[in-house]
Amino acid sequence: MATDKTNFQLVANGILKENPIFKLALSMCPAVGISTTVINGLMLGTAVLFVQVFSSVTISLLKNFIHPRIRIPTYTLTIATWVTVIDLSLAAYFPAAYAKMGIFVKIIVAFAIITMRLEMFACKEKVSSSFWDGLGMGLGFLVGMVAIGFVRELLGSGAILGYDVLGFKPLLFFILPSAGFFVVGLMMGFFNWIEASYSARKKR
């Protein structure tokens, strides 16, 4: 079965319609845990993008050799291999940022979003579509992480990417670790509200 979507639609689908963070509500741990700054979101988002794209392509290449009954362990081990690759690379080339992210790079291996894409898409589709789908999902995660990081950093410490833009700290509370839940909840509610009012206007 081949998908009838164009490559652009596949990427856009991951970023907007099925955004892993705000729409599917999968892989929330880093979105709550380390999204205090834009740069953290960018780093972890890139790592997830890498793992998602490479795992999708690997599974898509091997799909005819995998017995259906052991497919889940196969996915897990494929993801684990790519996570090890990105984990060791980050530790070697960006030690400072890696130390900040702590255990979160390693637990990418248990992210539901990656396994879900492999199960629902990559194991049925051809390699190029899987690549674009993985890219879309990874970018969707990246965009979500950066958006949360942007809100938390701007409102919490009045800065963007470490540069002080506001000159004051509107809501210091947002930078605290436990505020991650509040920020994600409020942003989800906000997007729901925008969507509802947008579709209501469309109907009229």
């Binding site: 839940f181 909840g185 409020l186 989800m188 509610g189």
Partner: peptide, 9 residues
């Protein structure tokens, strides 16, 4: 979900 997140907070 949004309210669940706020409760979790």
């Amino acid at each position: 979900l949004p309210i669940a997140f706020i409760v979790a907070g």
